[in-house]
Simulated scan of single mutants.
Amino acid sequence: MPENEPEPWEYWLYLPNDLRAVTISRRTLRLILTMHGLIGLVDVAELLATELVSNAVRHTKGPAALRVRWSAGVLRIGAWDTDPEPPEPPGPLEGLPDAEDGRGLALVRACADLWGWQPLTRHGDRGKYVWCELAAA
């Protein structure tokens, strides 16, 4: 690892199924990125985390979690939830209405360098993890 490359790090924030979790996630993410000197990524990262956590809380009945990981100049933001069903494929941003609903993953696709999802099974519990990545400029 080059001398000027920061060490990898990772944080998990476990969340109840409560819409207030979206605000808590956004503020926690801002603090994490600021403390690690990644203030240039904060605005886009907050938007992406808001969309991912909002989907996890609004469209499932169980708890959720926000995961933030930095490694090799890439920030990965993800949301875990208890619903094993895949997320709805995002449509084009320009064709979406101005309403709040239905734009989440289209915004993620438009703003992130890469995004995806994977099903998860642990101790008999099922769910999914939806993630996106931002490369440091």
Rank of each mutant, 00 (worst) to 15 (best):
M1I: 06
P2C: 13
E3D: 15
N4W: 14
E7Q: 04
P8T: 04
P8N: 14
W9A: 05
E10V: 09
W12P: 06
W12D: 11
Y14H: 15
Y14D: 12
L15N: 04
N17T: 00
D18E: 11
D18G: 05
L19Y: 10
A21W: 00
V22Q: 06
T23D: 13
S25W: 04
S25R: 02
S25L: 03
L33M: 06
T34A: 06
M35V: 13
H36Y: 05
G37P: 02
L38K: 02
L38Q: 02
I39R: 14
L41D: 02
V42S: 06
D43M: 12
A45G: 07
L47Q: 03
A49Y: 12
E51M: 06
L52F: 06
L52H: 03
L52R: 00
L52D: 02
L52G: 00
L52K: 00
V53T: 13
K61N: 14
P63I: 15
R67G: 05
R67D: 09
V68G: 10
R69M: 03
W70P: 01
W70A: 06
W70I: 02
S71I: 14
S71F: 11
V74C: 09
L75K: 03
L75W: 12
R76N: 10
I77D: 05
I77K: 00
I77N: 04
A79H: 08
W80C: 08
T82E: 08
P84Q: 07
E85G: 15
P86G: 12
P86K: 00
P86H: 00
P87Q: 06
P87Y: 08
P89T: 05
P90G: 10
L93E: 12
L93F: 02
L96C: 13
P97M: 05
D101R: 15
G102P: 09
R103P: 14
G104Y: 01
G104T: 10
A106Y: 03
L107D: 08
V108L: 08
V108Y: 03
V108K: 03
A110Q: 01
C111F: 10
W115F: 00
G116R: 12
Q118A: 03
Q118E: 07
R122P: 10
G124Q: 07
Y129R: 14
W131L: 07
L134I: 09
L134W: 05
L134Q: 08
A136P: 07
A137F: 08
A137D: 15
A137G: 13
A137I: 15
